[in-house]
């Protein structure tokens, strides 16, 4: 039996229900608008702030071939494991059409043959090409540096997918039914890694992929605030050389790599 934490969150609402239930057992009188007292200081009531910039540091030396714990964790976190292949579709076609927010890539250096493993997801560019090209402004960057899609105004033109240098975005090719409450997703819109945005909004310390990597004993993914000089990610970036993928494009990515 799965137990979900939803019963314990959403406190403001529940408080009000208690109050309302206590106040009246009858229909609320029309025109009476009840107001919740209190300025809510819970993290989920605070707007995303530009005082932080979320990012990831991936140490490819610690990432191993064949491990896909980060990918599985992402799938579970965001309900991507609930996608199903349309029954009549060929598996090979589905592999190219299903949504993938993070993927494992295995590289061999053309000269030295050195093999590198790494997870690749949206790089949360400071100057995101996907945001520049989006005709409606659906693709946007939050104050805290997270690049995501406002699915309410995404028209599904896929121009952002053409523009992303990392092929980090997915288009939802089929009707959806079993979405998670915290990750609404539906046919005809584009999506990508959002650095576990619901965790960010609830003030949690890490992402699903980073947690899973740590749990697997690898510790190849560090999540944190790039603007905080004392954060583990900033300290690690300072201590060791790292790079951005396709730094020639000068996008100033929020995801950095060691050892590629």
């Amino acid at each position: 039996m799965m137990k979900h934490p939803d019963e314990t969150i959403d406190q403001g609402r529940r408080d009000w229900f208690g109050l309302a239930a206590a106040a009246t057992a009858a229909v609320a009188a029309p025109g009476v608008i009840l107001h919740l007292a209190s300025a809510n200081t819970a993290p989920e009531a605070q707007p995303a702030s530009s005082a932080v910039r979320w990012g990831l540091l991936i140490d490819t030396n610690k990432c191993t071939s064949g491990c896909r714990d980060c990918v599985d964790a992402c799938d579970r976190e965001n309900g991507l494991d609930l996608q199903t292949k349309p029954p009549t579709e060929a598996p090979t076609a589905w592999a190219d059409q299903k949504a993938v927010w993070v993927r494992k890539v295995k590289l061999a250096d053309g000269l030295t043959g050195r093999v590198t493993n790494l997870p690749l997801m949206c790089q949360h560019c400071e100057h995101p090409p996907c945001v520049d090209v989006c005709p409606t402004g659906a693709s946007f960057k939050r104050a805290d540096g997270i690049v995501m899609v406002d699915r309410h105004i995404c028209i599904g033109c896929r121009y952002c997918m053409m523009a992303c240098p990392y092929q980090a975005r997915s288009f939802i090719h089929q009707p959806m039914h079993d979405q998670l409450t915290r990750v609404p997703r539906g046919k005809g819109c584009v999506e990508s890694c959002n650095l576990c945005v619901s965790r960010r909004d609830h003030g949690l310390p890490s992402t699903a992929c980073a947690d899973a990597c740590t749990a697997a004993g690898k510790g190849a993914i560090v999540f944190g605030d790039l603007k905080d000089p004392a954060s583990p990610i900033s300290l690690a970036l300072k201590a060791m050389p790292s790079r951005q993928l396709r730094e020639d494009l000068a996008l100033n990515t929020g995801v950095r790599y060691k050892g590629v």
């Binding site: 190219d96 993927r103 890539v105 093999v115 993928l245 590629v260």
Partner: peptide, 14 residues
Amino acid sequence: IFPGQTILDSGFAD
């Protein structure tokens, strides 16, 4: 994405 590298394997057919 990775100039000079050969992609051996990818979860997304890069």
